[in-house]
Design a protein around this nucleic acid. Structure first.
Length: 501
RNA sequence: GUCCCCGUCGUCUAGUCAGGUCAAGGACACCGGCCUUUCACGCCGGCAGCACCGGUUCAAAUCCGGUCGGGGACGCCA
């Protein structure tokens, strides 16, 4: 058998993301996809999406939609696919047969029951639990006889019985050696004729011309066996690069089962993350440059990315359940808010609009006459926000006449000084008479009013902020007043009496 | 039970391959200060770590050995 190289594109980089169809995109999976995607972009290669469903029963369309949606939202675009593993089952079977013919695999007639007994015995004797290779020693007559009886069989891979080992030169973990004697004759085809993952995966990667397999470290232990398959099939091995896993604070693998929605990409979309904020956070879980950069634009990240930067130690998704301040890893939030307050304002207008539409506070004029106002107001308030949900939440008073008043702010900034009940409407009267409504004129009228009262400026100013925005804190008050506008300010200030009830 | 991998601040990590310039640097979080009408932003400062033990060496986070701790793989799962 001659060696066939991956020459799909004259040895250009070809990588793939091969999730199983679970119905949603897991952040760990997203991270794997991101690394592959970055590697492909960096080397101007091809990124393939391949759905690894060997389970024919399931409704594929439904269960892959979540994955596709997640990748699309993140902006991780693929060049080929999605391919489906089920489409290639015949090819996998042919490969298994070919391996039997070439003497690299054999039929095994042992039943599950027999194997179970042996396994238990081995366990009891504290021996390693490997298949004892009974059927490997069957004569061709014995095999023919069993086949004639119609006995079901699986196909097992013949692991070399000599001394020695399989070597993997992992791009991340370095040289990994696995003794032949520590590998059992693993099954590659079930007794019902269907192929197993180890085989299918290798065959698919060979067919797709995959040059670099970038995947989770949980695949590391499979690699020696897959290399045996590659070699037996006469194929050139891809470069393997295993990435460390992401665990929770208790060092458990993160999963939807134990961590819920929090580990799905969808959750971050629903909670106001910018897609790139999530990408930037995820890429830092197990990868780093040797300078101190942590914030990247798309182009910067593609340029900076390399397999050498991938670490070997598992990282932890730093999330504390029930944390009142951080609903997910604080670092994720901080990266997201960094982008939220530094990106050109136009770039966050999109997601904010989408949210406003669902919240029912979108004004079509924000795309027209009020565009400038919309953008500058977002710009004014964004430095305090963590997600774009905050615009319709904490920032609601700027965009809607209906907004809640924070009870803490009300108590501390308004109710504490009963005189405000009269002062604020008086101030509103003065404002009413202003010809122009600018930073300067509003400041002048407010300061003048305060001077007349002879009280500390903060008392009035903070009360105005709370009454006008519903919040304890916010931008400089005169910025707030100009942003919200004379009519609404006056109306809200006069409404202070309501708040005293 | 067998095999493989990993171990630097609470978290993400730089530094480990080519030992000294590391009495260990950055980021997030936390604390304090400045700014200020508030809160953020920004700026300045602080807290906090080489898992442990032994060896090699003039010198070890870095090399070697062991211990402990963590993770992964050992399926007719993917």
């Amino acid at each position: 058998m001659q060696s066939q190289n991956y020459d799909k594109t004259k040895d250009g980089v070809r990588v793939r993301f091969a999730p199983s169809p679970t119905g949603y995109l897991h952040i760990g999976g997203a991270r794997t996809a991101i690394y592959n995607w970055l590697f492909a972009k960096k080397h101007k290669g091809v990124f393939i999406l391949r759905i690894e469903n060997t389970d024919l029963e399931r409704s594929i369309a439904d269960s892959i939609q979540g994955i596709i949606d997640g990748l699309n939202w993140l902006g991780i675009n693929w060049d080929e696919g999605p391919y489906f593993q089920t489409q290639y089952i015949e090819e996998h079977k042919r490969a298994a047969r070919r391996l039997v013919e070439s003497g690299h695999a054999y039929k095994c007639f042992c039943t599950k029951e027999e194997l179970d007994v042996k396994r238990k015995a081995a366990l009891a004797a504290k021996q390693s639990v490997q298949y004892d290779r009974t059927c490997r020693r069957l004569t061709s007559e014995a095999i023919a006889a069993k086949e004639a009886q119609g006995l079901p069989y699986v196909i097992r891979f013949k692991v070399p019985e000599q001394q020695g080992s399989v070597c993997v030169n992992d791009a991340v973990y370095g040289l990994i050696e696995k003794q032949y004697q520590d590998i059992e004759d693993f099954v590659i085809l079930r007794s019902d004729g269907s192929p197993l993952y180890l085989l299918s995966n290798a065959v698919d990667d060979i067919r797709d011309g995959i040059t670099h397999v970038i995947r989770g470290q949980d695949g590391l232990a499979n690699t020696p066996r897959q290399i045996l398959i590659y070699e037996a099939l006469g194929a050139r091995c891809p470069v393997f690069a295993h990435m460390p896993l992401t665990l929770d604070l208790k060092k458990r693998k993160i999963s939807k089962r134990t961590h819920g929605e929090l580990v799905s990409v969808q959750f971050y979309r629903d909670h106001g993350f910018l897609p790139w904020g999530l990408v930037n956070y995820l890429v830092l879980l197990g990868w780093h440059t040797s300078d101190d950069r942590e914030i990247f634009s798309r182009e910067e990240l593609i340029d900076a990315f390399s397999l050498e930067g991938i670490g070997r130690a598992n990282s932890i998704f730093n999330y504390t359940p029930g944390d009142p301040k951080f609903f997910t890893d604080p670092k994720a939030l901080s990266i997201n808010s960094h982008f939220l307050r530094t990106l050109p304002i136009e770039e966050i207008a999109g997601p904010v609009k989408e949210d406003f539409v669902t919240e029912g506070i979108w004004d079509p004029a924000y795309d027209g006459d009020k565009r400038q106002w919309f953008l500058s107001t977002m710009d004014l308030i964004r430095s305090r926000f963590h997600t774009f949900k905050d615009f319709a939440g904490l920032g609601r008073a700027y965009f809607s006449e209906e907004f809640p008043v924070d009870p803490k702010a009300l108590k501390k900034r308004v109710l504490k000084h009963p005189d405000l009940k009269n002062w604020l409407p008086q101030l509103a009267d003065r404002m009413e008479q202003l010809e122009s409504w600018t930073l300067e004129t509003t400041e002048e009228v407010v300061r003048d009013f305060i001077q007349g009262l002879g009280v500390k400026p903060g008392i009035v100013i903070n009360a105005v902020r709370t009454v006008v925005t519903g919040q304890l804190a916010g931008p400089g008050i005169f910025d707030v007043l100009t942003a919200i506008g004379k009519d609404r300010v006056v109306k809200r200030l006069c409404g202070v009496r309501e708040l005293f009830r």
